[in-house]
Design a protein around this nucleic acid. Sequence first.
DNA 1: GCAAAAATGATTGACGTACCTCAAGCATTA
DNA 2: TAATGCTTGAGGTACGTCAATCATTTTTGC
Lengths: 340, 340
Amino acid sequence: MTRVTAQDVAEEAGVSLATVDRVLNKRKGVRDKTIERVTQAMDRLNFVRDQAAANLARGRTYTFTFIVTAGETAFFSDLRGEIEAARDFAAKERVALRMVAVPPLDPQAIVDAIDSFGDDLGDGFAIVSVESQAMREAIKALRDKGVHVITFISDVPNSERQRFVGIDNVAAGRVAGGLLKRFISAPKGDVAVVAGSGTLRDHVERRMGLEQVMRAECPHLTVLPWIEGEESGPLVEQKLSKLLAENPNVVGLYSVGGGTKGVIGAIEAAPQEISVVTTELSDHTRAALIAGTVDAVLVQDPSHEVRSAVRVLKALADETIINEKQERIRIEIFMRDNLP
Amino acid sequence: MTRVTAQDVAEEAGVSLATVDRVLNKRKGVRDKTIERVTQAMDRLNFVRDQAAANLARGRTYTFTFIVTAGETAFFSDLRGEIEAARDFAAKERVALRMVAVPPLDPQAIVDAIDSFGDDLGDGFAIVSVESQAMREAIKALRDKGVHVITFISDVPNSERQRFVGIDNVAAGRVAGGLLKRFISAPKGDVAVVAGSGTLRDHVERRMGLEQVMRAECPHLTVLPWIEGEESGPLVEQKLSKLLAENPNVVGLYSVGGGTKGVIGAIEAAPQEISVVTTELSDHTRAALIAGTVDAVLVQDPSHEVRSAVRVLKALADETIINEKQERIRIEIFMRDNLP
DNA sequence: GCAAAAATGATTGACGTACCTCAAGCATTA
DNA sequence: TAATGCTTGAGGTACGTCAATCATTTTTGC
């Protein structure tokens, strides 16, 4: 069972290797009829291009840049760690990774970070961004220069990003809703929502998912206006404590992201019996799960997300197809009983 | 930013390319002191071996064989489909995949399947197996011939398999337990368990996980002896219907795997109000989730598992390291609200 | 200090594809 | 009929590593 090479295809099609090569790499100067003959020969022989040899011959290296959120949220500090860790595996495939951490919730900082590279933009960017017009323009500017752009973790819809890599955040919200629906035994009450900011698409979508479930299936529960914590634990704790003190009817809480530590602090101090779903598997949420303060934690795997982003950027650069199943990022649910 | 090649390492270490190559490929004929110098030079320059070029030069191709369960279970028919689908992506990396489907629960069939390859064993096997002494011996025989062996989906502990690729089945059982614990509102009752066979390690482990949670946290619930359905829907339906008719105290059910269609049929006909957790996301379970017959479905992604198996076998063959995070197969939880 | 053995150097040809050049063939148009 | 432009063939080099050979140097044992 020996491999079929481009040379074999050439013989089968009755053309030269050069022509097969022109077809393979979509170079011009081949008649449609000839292209047809070559592709048919490839089908007949079941020719599969040897990626390894192709990359080697091309001698191509790729530079991809991650622009991520700085700050000490457990998730983002994990994410930065995973990007660092991905350097090694990426290097084996001739991919160099760069990373810039910018302050959260500040689109201008992202634009500045991109500008700081000057003409050395590399081949692609993966950007964790808030949704803003400035970002849409920055993405368009990159695309116009032939740089590939994907949004990462949090999407920027209606921009020219080629793809979004991250979980289905509406689905995550629905999961949270489905869990709260079953966890809350009170016949009536309010559900609080804590988020980072209304400019974070992922947070907005998660809340949407929660509301979808609540409206459709839980007429006895009311979703309260959300608390914006700006990714700050203390601020979240202060605002949430105030809410819980003023509203004794809160029976459920969904912490959409950011400031989870503050959420846990406020819940522990509150008199109500509250069912709680949060994000991020950190030491704090882990302890809270065990203690019973938090009932479930919804997690996205940053390690998978980083690998997926690199694969997608590489596929865009190589113009190869993306394996959709592989790039579907899963939402994991952890409860006290299945903590890893 | 040009790549560091073996040639660069040779210069840095003050040796020839041939020596670097000997060190790289662990060939003998190099003094320890020299090995040291070369590896230090590699560290200094941050040398990363180009896998693509290496495989190309080696001209090596790999043949891996999947031995999987035949039969029409949704999961296994998906799994077989994914193995077929993986052929393309594998071919790009010089990996040929073979697949044999054998009747379920029959270790001898697996042994026969292996024997049918004669001396053409290829480089590795991924085997979905029941636990039995015959299998342990067959695995040992393969290993003795230098063939790599991993168990797949269901493990065979205490065998010489080099690795198990699949989910943590005890954790899956604990998740089921955690969910049932919360879903069941009755103050007291029995929990039924339906499984394929006691020789399937994955089923045994899932039940173990369930019992761990139940014993520790649910003194009010009693786990009943399990029903063995031998992967047959009708048999499961018959046995389970009988149980439900005789025992009005059943308030929860965990279908560990196999015969899910029968489970759903029996539940629908039963008078009790039962909280149900099953496996496999098929048309049947999907409809049952929407109808409310089933409360949650625990899923493993066969597409991920197949890719993981191929990567692991390749890493074993190449003697390269395995990225543990990438190979952790996740357990997904679907409820009515987050059906994809 | 010598011979034998071990270690190292120098060199070369794969491996399969990419990409380039040059020349030749061919059809179309003026 | 010649000029033009498009298509194709032929052949070569490069990519980084592997694997092998043969020559040369260094080390080891006595």
